[in-house]
Amino acid sequence: MSKLLEAYRLRVRRKRKLLRAIRKRRELRSVADRTREIRPGDILCFTTLRNERIRLSYFLRYYRDLGVDHFLMIDNASDDGSREFLAEQPDVSLWTTPHSYKRSDFGTDWINGLLRRHAHGHWALVVDVDEFLVYPFCDTRPLGALVDWLDASSMRSFGAMLLDMYPKGPIDAVPYRAGQDPFEIASWFDSGNYMLEKNPVYRNLWIQGGPRMRAFFGDNPERAPALNKIPLVKWHRGNAFVESTHMLLPRGLNLVYDQWGGERISGCLLHAKFLDTFREKAREELNRRQHYANSHEYRAYHERLSKDSNLWNQWSEKYINWRQLEVLGLMSKGNWA
């Protein structure tokens, strides 16, 4: 009985989330709508951003090369030329909004609204501009091969943990240039300090760890940011992201892991957050207070980084390729061969 009740409660939550998404869609103003060019079977990429001009060229190139067919992007009041740049791209549809990021549930409502309208029946990739998807065989097989295989395996979602990347030395020692591969600078990561816990209601795994937990949240690790992500989903108009891309409803979509001892397929989202751009960003976000839990995360960063901004240590691992992440056990091929 209580199980039924729980299922019903989640259903109500999902419906409410969808209603919110529809309502919040009014906050978006179209800048360049090229969605008519979307063909059946296209892989779509959804992104919200604010003042990320310097990152955009590499971001678009990376995902175009992987095989994303169309980008649907939301600009949250950028004033650094991001909007103008994106509006010119032939495979980008762009919306803009001056409204509060926080009050749209950190962008989730906006994204859900666009997903519902444009992604039904498509594979949708939802990433930030500093997140770069790595999946098994990504150096030889395009994203299309992955989603075809997921389709054939009757899998509707694909998990990819956030892997925080950082440079060796102070994070602002080497400036990032527009168009550059950020992992030429931030090429290091923590290979084995991740804590996992199952969320009994949503059934997703809650993952914490990496350099952020180690360096910023050593005293209260439960506040460390969540690293579990489900960025690639075969979209149905009834789906909804709940907290960023950490979890979804219906909750069956969150079961991207095996519970019987085996391994399912998974990838990683390489996170190019810790570059020289970060300190500026952290200060800005601290002032805007538009982030989760009163931006306590950014406060922690600010505090630590003003003392010492080196995240590197002798156990840091230097990134080579997806096979390395697979061997280290950060992601898995599952039964894809």
């Binding site: 991207v256 892991y257 998974s266 992601m331």
Partner: peptide, 10 residues
Amino acid sequence: GLYMQSRFPA
């Protein structure tokens, strides 16, 4: 002995 995002045995 591996616990990760896609292997989390009960």
